[in-house]
Design a protein around this nucleic acid. Structure first.
Lengths: 241, 241
DNA sequence: CTCAATTATTGACTATTCGTCATTTAATGA
DNA sequence: TCATTAAATGACGAATAGTCAATAATTGAG
């Protein structure tokens, strides 16, 4: 006996089919190529039915972003709960971020879209709040690791510093790096054949700059990174075929 | 005696008027609010005439980005040519970036737009190359300062490191931070009342992590930053009323 | 100055899109 | 069986990008 009626199940299936199609279209031809008419046509439903699921195009896009963000939050939680030193847990967060990008190469494009085009205003409070919640939760998780490091004596912040500033440093570096990486194919021509590794080095050196011990010169965090990837997200990540 | 005929001048004026209007519209209501019809209406010209200047909407957007990028390149060159230590010149680059964002708050939104929506494909080779050129030049300038630092003995890169990796670190951090800052109004709610200052700290700590002397703990780079802002870009920046 | 040739401008037109809603179709259960 | 409720439809209105034949303005040779 199911908790959902056949109708409810059908509806949910259709919804995920819509999102799946939309994701493919977005990947294929960007925001402008994502057309409600085409979704309806490919679904073999009329447009009106699609609009019963999502009141507008923007809600679909934000839904896609939220699906991804939810997974990222899970991965960050997994990384944070790892039994290791604070900086190793931080490395695990890095592994989570890298794995997330591997699984959702579209996410940054979508996130940028949501931020830049006037998509935000057209979406429902509920979905907007969900998104902000996910982001805030991610920050809180990373902030928690920072505070643990302080508690453990591995990190001492200067007077005019807060954990939030450090988290913002990592966040902005990651966001920027992956935005550039996923939307630019000419990085080799500019002397950066392996931008992901460059990001990894820079993250470590930033934490070294904060004096978060053990410093990356004294410990092989790349090994930790690979280990976290394997143990925590190895083989198959949750919710992914 | 002008080198341009009256017609050419008129055309150029009209072109900059179009860009000006487009910029305002983009600021006002985003990519979707930027309408060729509305531009034509507000210019009091017909649509066809607008299309004689720009073959499509996307070219207008890329033009706007390029206008801004050109100015940033100028500012970076100015900063790099400053007579000071390598890390001070780096601080001047930071001042240039900050000043650039102050003058062009729209730039990051437009840049993200160009990257994420399918704008890139629709634009001319010429404009695309101009953009890539500007970006590459900016990187080269910053890379030049890094190399000067190495020559001066203020910086020693590890074996597996290159100047490009460092530049990428600064680039991604700046790009990410300003993208987030200019597209998010809820940073205070997340414990970041002054994100620009946070960025500044993080940049310095990253360079400290690289061991670029004098370290920020030994030298007041914020003073340098303010000084560069004043001396190099103070009062009125070039090409700005 | 005149007027044919060139150049610039126009806006009606096509095609495409989003989102709505009266109408039709299907499902339900008394 | 059939009245009532729910779901699905697609024609429609309103915007928009971009085109292009027709029109207006400019130019410069005679």
């Amino acid at each position: 006996m199911q908790t959902l009626t056949r109708k409810e199940r059908e509806k949910q299936e259709r919804e995920s089919k819509i999102l799946q199609l939309a994701s493919a279209m977005l990947k294929e031809s960007g925001y402008l190529g994502l057309s409600m008419d085409r979704i309806a046509a490919e679904m073999e439903y009329s447009k009106g039915t699609i609009y019963q699921h999502f009141p507008n195009k923007e809600e679909i896009i934000l839904s896609l972003a939220n699906e991804a963000l939810k997974k990222r939050l899970d991965m960050f939680e997994t990384a944070s709960a790892w039994n290791a030193t604070s900086r190793q847990r931080m490395a695990a967060i890095g592994a989570a971020a890298a794995e997330f990008v591997r699984i959702h190469p579209m996410y940054f494009a979508v996130d940028q879209l949501v931020r830049s085009a006037s998509i935000w205003e057209k979406t429902s409070d509920q979905r907007r709040q969900f998104m902000q919640n996910c982001e805030a939760s991610c920050m809180r998780i990373v902030g928690g690791i920072v505070n643990d490091a302080i508690t453990d004596g591995d990190l001492r912040l200067a007077n005019n510093m807060t954990a939030e500033v450090l988290v913002f440093g990592l966040w902005s570096m990651n966001f920027g790096a992956y935005s550039i990486i996923t939307s630019s194919d000419s990085l080799e021509q500019v002397g950066l054949p392996e931008p992901e590794i460059a990001l990894w080095h820079n993250q470590n050196l930033l934490l070294d700059g904060y004096g978060w011990t053990p410093l990356s010169s004294d410990f092989d965090y790349f090994h930790t990174f690979e280990q976290a990837k394997q143990e925590l997200f190895g083989g198959r990540t949750p919710n992914e075929p």
